[in-house]
């Protein structure tokens, strides 16, 4: 009888330990999921901001929405603050004829997220289709 009681107590403690382990594991998984989703959202936000503001073609003092002037790539800071978090990025813009790229590399082992967007480039005084790739990481 005592042996059975001891066994029951041990099994109960074991189940509690397993439950606590699962709880901790689920929390870590949730934290990582939220962090990854945050990086994905930040990547889209940075790419959007680059097209609409930092790289936007200037005509008559006004920005032309959704048209990129690739020459402005040299004026970028390659760092953005989003929701109190600092993000670093590098960028590559390409048309069917030319390519521009700038920015640093992510620290080794750092999680990165990239997005490739079709964009309109101001090239040779014409608006031509192009692509912009942005790779983002937490600084």
């Amino acid at each position: 009888m005592d042996l059975i009681r001891i066994l029951k107590a041990v099994m109960t403690v074991l189940i509690i330990v397993v439950f606590l382990f699962l709880l901790f594991s689920a929390y870590e998984h949730y934290r990582m999921t939220v962090s990854t989703a945050g990086l994905i959202d930040a990547t889209g936000a940075i790419a959007n901001d680059l097209v609409l503001n930092d790289l936007a073609l200037q005509e008559g003092g006004a920005k032309v929405a959704y048209v990129i002037d690739p020459g402005r790539i040299t004026s970028l800071s390659f760092s953005k603050l989003i929701a109190s978090e600092n993000f670093g990025y590098r960028i590559r813009i390409s048309s069917t004829e030319t390519e521009w790229s700038a920015g640093g590399e992510a620290p080794e082992g750092r999680e990165t997220c990239s997005i490739v967007l079709p964009v309109v480039l101001f090239e040779n005084f014409r608006h031509v289709p192009g692509k912009m790739e942005v790779v983002v990481w937490r600084a």
Partner: peptide, 11 residues
């Protein structure tokens, strides 16, 4: 305990 672990991970 196992079922609750699955639910917690799927959250």
């Amino acid at each position: 305990a196992i079922f609750s672990g699955v639910l917690l991970h799927s959250y």
